[in-house]
Structures are given as C-alpha cells and as structure tokens.
C-alpha cells in the first residue's frame, strides 16, 4: 500500500498528503468562521491559523506543507468569500505558511518545543502587519495611520499567534507518541530504510 499511496499526486505531494493539507485548510476556514463572532480582540484569528499550520507541518514531512496549507485555506476563503480581506487574505495565509516552513527548515525540532512554536507563531503574527499595511494603503489610509492601525492589531496577533503555536506542540507531541505521525527528525535507520517516504502519516 505504501508504494501505491506514495505516488505523487500534485506538486510533489501524495494524495494522502494533499488531503491532510486540505483538511487542515478546512479546519482553518471553519475556525475562522467561528471566530467571526465579534470578540473585540484584534488578531484572535491567528490562533487557529498558526495551530493548524504547525500541526500540518508536524504531520507531513514534505517541503512547503505549511505554505500549501496556507495557500489552500486562502484559496478556499477567497472562493467562498469567507475572508475579510479578499485577495490579501490569501497573501497573509501564504506568508504565514512560508514562515512556518522556513523556520522548520532551519530548526527541524520546531514542533517539539513549545517555546520555539510560540516564537514562530508570534513571527507569523508580525507578518500580518505588513499585509495589513498594504490593505490599509489600498483603502486610502495615510501611511502613518495605516502603520498605527496595523501595529495596534499586531500586538494581539503576536499574542494569539504565540498561543496557537503553544497549543500545536502538545497535540503534535501526543500524536507522535501514539504513533499516528512520525517524529520530526527520523532516526538514521528509518531514513535509510525509506528514503522516498516523506509522509509522516502512518498508514
């Protein structure tokens, strides 16, 4: 079965990996729909985004998983009008995924450490400031005002991003411990046995 399911399906991902990223993207969208309830907490939407992006990153060992998850979530929110920022939503999701992937490449034990995940989540929150500035400028706000407005939201986004990262780690750890997903850094024997098996989801 492994040989059959490891056939590349799309962009170098197997069908199973693509579906896991799809489900993670749907999780982001559903959580964001739920968080449409006005809580008057700027940046609270980053919590599920960071949580699902890091969890997808932990589940699949392929490159650019978080970016693909962010792209799919952004595309779905664009297709179904679930986003508040239109095309900028897609950009912000992809940038957040890109940060998760880059940090994971630099620090492969990212999803094992609560502190590292929290810091990555906070970085993902900061990335939203840039997108927010571009959006405000497009809507005609003065640059300094756009920066002020975005920075007001950035504090909350960083806190919620860090929380999302901190929540993702215990879930990923528990799933690794139960054998549902493989550890982030495989042992040399495992890596030598299956050089082509990049998916960490156990069949």
């Amino acid at each position: 079965m492994t040989g059959q399911t490891n056939t590349k399906y799309w962009l170098g991902f197997t069908l199973r990996e693509a579906l896991v990223t799809g489900f993670s993207a749907v999780g982001i969208i559903l959580a964001q729909q739920f968080l449409r309830i006005p809580m008057h907490l700027p940046g609270h939407r980053l919590l599920p985004l960071v949580f699902f992006l890091l969890l997808a990153r932990a589940c699949i060992r392929a490159c650019w998983v978080a970016t693909l998850t962010g792209f799919l979530a952004g595309l779905m929110s664009l297709l179904f009008g679930m986003g508040h920022a239109g095309p900028m939503q897609l950009l912000s999701f992809v940038i957040a995924g890109l940060i998760a992937d880059i940090v994971f490449r630099l620090l492969p034990r990212l999803t094992r450490s609560v502190a590292l995940s929290a810091i990555t989540g906070a970085f993902m929150g900061v990335s939203w400031v840039l997108v927010s500035i571009v959006q405000d400028r497009l809507l005609g706000l003065d640059f300094s005002l756009a920066v002020t407005h975005s920075l007001l939201r950035a504090g909350g986004a960083m806190i919620f991003g860090a929380l999302g990262g901190a929540f993702a780690t215990p879930v990923a750890r528990r799933m690794q411990a139960s054998g549902t997903i493989m550890p982030d850094v495989p042992s040399p024997e495992v890596a030598a046995d299956s050089p082509e098996d990049r998916t960490s989801v156990q069949p």
Binding site: R16, L19, G27, R174, V201
Partner: peptide
C-alpha cells in the same frame, strides 16, 4: 483536538486509498 485530528488523518488515508 487530538482525537479529531487523528480521525481526520485516518479519513485522509481512507479517502486516498478509495480514490487510488
């Protein structure tokens, strides 16, 4: 979160096998 995510992973497995 853990049981729901595990269920989603298993569902992805089943769907991919069925699709193949």
């Amino acid at each position: 979160a853990i049981p729901i995510f595990m269920r989603a992973l298993h569902l992805a497995d089943e769907v991919s096998v069925a699709a193949r």
